[in-house]
Design a protein around this nucleic acid. Structure first.
Lengths: 137, 137
DNA sequence: TTATAGTTTATAATAATTCTAAAGTATGTC
DNA sequence: GACATACTTTAGAATTATTATAAACTATAA
């Protein structure tokens, strides 16, 4: 993804392209494979890869802004550590979770097919459906 | 579930039947339907229903002991609030999650059937598979 | 270039959870 | 039943993830 592309991505979501957001966006979106991270791990990576300074609050703000803008998805999963995972893959998909390594692996939506799904309770609708396959060795 | 049954349940898991554990066990397991709770909500319920005093740490300890002994399962889900849910239903099953009300609803294992499941990555095995169906209004 | 609204930052505040050390209690043994 | 011992509970401190705050900074549009 090119710089202009990232700029547009930010602008189109109403996010001003600040130095920090550009660095974070470059880091998150300039990659081929999807990327799973926690705010903490993202902070560490950024500290290593860039010379820009990032307050932790900025990373939280930016990640949440990206999530709100639909550029990141949150993985509803609670691992060993008590942190929230984010995912640069925003298409509908599922996950393997390896609790040994705290590692998430994407599963394409079409890798899982359902034969039977219950209908939502009274007055509710299904927003989405998330499968987590826990792994062991 | 009778008192002796709960006593046995504790003993068989190597847990000494203390006053606190008995109260907690009675509260959790003397019911027909499965029960979903957080440590906080459990603490509040206990405070209302009993005259016994419970330190928060005791509730954490006891709930984790029950989980370890296989009498409770943990629902790996992160709601609005940042808390962990536990479930008195320890059979394999799935959940609806209503983020409006932070409410969990059990789905029997046989309510969901799969046509296709990916195979686990190199050297890993599938431990279990958890479906969360998020609801909206 | 300037005013404004949006951002970053350091720090404080909150909230869930775990740790700790002391006081209390269940249990097997005599 | 009384004792010693190992396991528990407790209150409060400590830790950790996250959010709030208020002041300094910056992108942007006129």
């Amino acid at each position: 993804m090119k710089k202009t592309s990232i700029l547009n991505k930010l602008r189109s979501s109403g996010l001003r392209p600040t130095k920090q957001r550009l660095e974070i966006a470059k880091f998150l979106f300039n990659r081929d494979k999807t990327f799973h991270f926690t705010v903490e791990s993202l902070g560490k990576h950024l500290a290593k890869k860039t010379t820009t300074k990032f307050a932790l609050a900025t990373i939280y703000n930016t990640v949440h802004a990206f999530k709100k803008a639909g550029h990141l998805s949150e993985v509803y999963l609670r691992g060993k550590n008590n942190t929230t995972y984010f995912d640069t893959n925003i298409s509908n998909h599922h996950h393997f979770y390896d609790s040994e390594t705290s590692e998430l692996i994407d599963i394409n939506e079409n890798e899982i097919k359902f034969n039977k799904i219950p209908k939502a309770p009274n007055g509710k609708t299904i927003k989405n459906l998330e499968v987590i396959i826990n792994l062991k060795n």
